[in-house]
Design a protein around this nucleic acid. Structure first.
Length: 321
DNA sequence: AAGCTCTGCAACCGCCCCCGT
DNA sequence: AACGGGGGCGGTTGCAGAGCT
């Protein structure tokens, strides 16, 4: 059972704040300060919950808020900090003067997460999404021989247990209180489901332009960093911070390929892509988005640079089919 | 023009932490 | 040490406006 409500919900106003209410709370706080929020609504003449007042003040009325759109530098900082500490929005917001944790959270959920997806980066682990396919390959998912033109179907062996995330996708925050690999997996793929609409697989047979940055990486095979203003490495967790999987998998799978890890043609530092994702080349070194169902089956979209098309690969868990 | 869908963001909810008693 | 209340936080929801069909 949770805590009792902080106020009588039937007796407080909810929803958007009016200019009049804003004026009241501003007037009150300018003379009395922000101590004891539970008493603020009564003293300020507001029919609001104290928490609601605090939220209105901290997220909107505070005079130090700048109310401007995010700069590219701020976005970069948010992504870097998210890679390092996860969704600790208040800590991230502390590094951004004039921006609230709510602003950061909203901006992440509406813009930055999508941007990373478009660049082939998993916004939770900050690792290439193709590594997920690599993992499935490594645990025994096999490619079906009956592959339609634009859809490849993969079958998991009967004995394959419910999939879990590889150690390479464990974040630096891992400890006893952190989600299990399996939880991370399902969280990730719920996210992927939500983002499937970004890449319309219904149109998989038609050509869909790849994210421009994939082209940038394609032109940069020397593993020394991206030539574009966008740096992949900025969005990726330092491998030192990740739980190594050396004991379980070949180094080529474990070593993160760095800025060139998403090299779509599989050249350069593409060891894990060539050797782990697929060996036949038809999904060679591809990146994309994926979705899954709770039975362990999942789909992953791959961009095929040669054909200039997205392909949909379906991974089926034979235990449930 | 109307209806539908999408997007962005303000606001809410409920849990957790901290601090005072 | 235990308890209770206030504040903080992250996840989620709901709504208004924009865009699309």
């Amino acid at each position: 059972m949770g805590r009792p409500p902080c106020c009588d919900k039937s007796n407080v106003k909810r929803g958007l704040w009016t200019a009049e209410e804003d004026a009241k709370i501003l007037a009150y706080i300018s003379t009395h300060g922000t101590a004891n929020w539970t008493s603020v609504p009564k003293k300020a003449g507001l029919k609001r919950c104290g928490k609601s007042c605090r939220l209105r003040w901290t997220n909107y009325l505070r005079p130090d808020l700048k109310h401007e759109s995010f700069t590219p530098q701020e976005e970069e900082l948010i992504v870097n900090l998210h890679a390092a500490i996860g969704s600790r929005w208040s800590i991230i917001a502390d590094q951004l003067p004039g921006i609230t944790d709510n602003d950061v959270k909203n901006h992440w959920n509406t813009k930055l997460r999508k941007k990373l997806f478009e660049k082939g980066i998993d916004p939770i682990t900050h690792k290439p999404m193709s590594q997920i396919a690599a993992y499935y390959q490594s645990i025994g998912f096999s490619k079906s021989t009956k592959s339609p033109t634009t859809t490849s179907t993969y079958h998991a062996p009967k004995s394959t247990p419910k999939p879990m995330m590889p150690n390479t996708l464990t974040t630096m925050n891992n400890n006893n209180n952190q989600p299990t690999h399996q939880e991370i997996f399902y969280n990730n793929h719920t996210l992927y489901n939500a983002n499937l609409k970004m890449i319309s697989f219904d149109e998989a047979s038609s050509s869909i332009a790849p994210p421009s940055l994939m082209q940038d990486d394609h032109n940069n095979n020397d593993c020394s960093g991206s030539s574009s203003s966008f740096s992949w490495s900025d969005f990726l967790l330092d491998e030192e911070l990740l739980s190594p999987c050396k004991d379980e998998q070949p180094q080529s799978q474990c070593a993160f390929a760095g800025p060139n890890g998403l090299d779509v043609d599989g050249g350069g530092c593409s060891g894990f892509m060539d050797e782990v994702i697929v060996s036949q080349g038809d999904l060679n070194g591809l990146v994309g988005s994926s979705s899954t169902s709770l039975d362990g089956s999942f789909m992953e979209g791959f961009y095929d640079e040669d054909s200039g098309m997205w392909e949909l690969a379906e991974f089926l868990n034979d235990e449930t089919t």
